[in-house]
């Protein structure tokens, strides 16, 4: 990749240490994000996508801990920073917005107070200048009559408005990177469209990079340049967005795409993935997806494949694309997408 890479995560490992055992919530996540671009991290519940996001800013709840790997951001490995250094990055160079706008703002402080706080910590703005800047930010994210809103409490705003406030707060210090953790999942469709539109628009204007965590492949298709698909705490596939939808490589990605009931075309029968998502306490030994994979061989059950380049920038974690593959030759020749279709 010749472009400027702003974030390069290598083999990230995050675990939660419970009384007598370790839950490996994130266990081998690697991806690169070019400057000014958006990467989508997709996965179902328990895939580790949100924990990955929280690991970047070290916002994990006790007893979670990043235990290995590198998070290279603008030439610095975030995992090696002190608590004080990471605090200077939070809300300043890297900002984050969350899934639940209803509960993500402190109910006892006004919108203005909460935005000013960020400005004060990172830029030392006083109350007067902070309020001016806060009003500008609210205007930027499309909140009507910002000079009134700035004095209001969160409960006086709708969910969509609160998410706009969260975005305004995140943008306060012109961050290089915005991490959006399911930012529209709790919102209605028409409001979701507004918020996604806003994020896209702001990204164009401000040139920031975005990590979009979501379970919705529609959101990925409409907002992202690159996609990392996660399953069982690992990235199983990384591609640019067009290649991913045109030519998904990992059998899990293929299955996911075939499971979506589409609103834009008729599908006679959905082809669901059999079984259910494995629990992080009880992960399969080999490939995490093997027990649900229609092509799995004994090798898949026993040994974990690595995340390797297949063509161009695409990476996939699957035995089919290696010389060790001993299963169906047709799958190797035509890819899991075609084969699954003909079944």
């Amino acid at each position: 990749m010749s472009e400027d890479i702003i974030l390069d995560i290598k083999d990230l490992q995050t675990s939660f240490y419970l009384d007598d055992f370790e839950v490996k919530a994130v266990d081998g996540v690697s991806f690169k994000l070019p400057k000014g671009k958006t990467i989508g991290i997709v996965g179902e519940s328990g895939s580790g996508k949100s924990i990955t996001a929280l690991s970047i800013l070290r916002l994990l709840d006790h007893p979670g801990k990043v235990k290995g790997g590198e998070i290279n951001f603008k030439g610095r490995d975030l995992t090696t920073l002190t608590d004080k250094e990471i605090r200077q990055i939070r809300g300043n160079e890297i900002s984050m917005i969350f899934q639940e706008p209803m509960t993500s703002l402190n109910p006892v402080y006004t919108i203005g107070q909460q935005i000013r706080e960020t400005l004060k910590v990172h830029q030392g703005l006083d109350k007067e200048n902070g309020t001016k800047k806060a009003i500008e930010l609210l205007k930027l994210v499309g909140i009507p009559s910002p000079d009134k809103r700035v004095k209001q409490y969160p409960h006086e705003l709708s969910g969509g408005m609160r998410q706009r406030v969260m975005i305004a707060m995140a943008l306060a210090c012109n961050p290089d990177l915005l991490i959006a953790d399911e930012p529209t999942t709790a919102l209605d469709v028409t409001i979701q469209a507004q918020i996604l539109d806003l994020i896209n628009d702001l990204q164009d204007r401000l040139g920031m990079s975005v990590i979009m965590i979501t379970h919705d492949l529609g959101v990925v298709a409409e907002t992202c340049d690159y996609v990392a698909v996660m399953y069982g705490g690992k990235v199983v596939e990384y591609q640019d967005v067009k290649s991913l939808f045109r030519n998904p490589k990992h059998p899990y990605t293929v299955g996911l795409l075939k499971s979506i009931p589409r609103h834009d075309t008729d599908v006679d029968e959905l082809e669901p993935i059999r079984g259910s998502v494995p629990s992080p306490k009880d992960m399969p030994k080999g490939c995490r997806f093997a027990p649900r994979c229609p092509f799995a061989t004994e090798l898949c059950m026993e040994e974990l494949p690595s995340l390797d380049h297949v063509e161009g920038e695409s990476e996939v974690r699957c035995w089919i694309y290696t010389d060790h593959w001993d299963g169906d030759a047709e799958v190797k020749a035509h890819g899991p997408k075609r084969v699954a279709q003909s079944n």
Partner: peptide, 24 residues
């Protein structure tokens, strides 16, 4: 507008999106 607001899982689909103003 409801139909146009749903994100389509196809990055190459062209569509016109009607973005509604304001909240319900």
């Amino acid at each position: 507008s409801l139909l146009s607001a749903i994100p389509t899982p196809d990055p190459e689909a062209k569509k016109e999106r009607i973005i509604l103003k304001g909240d319900v």
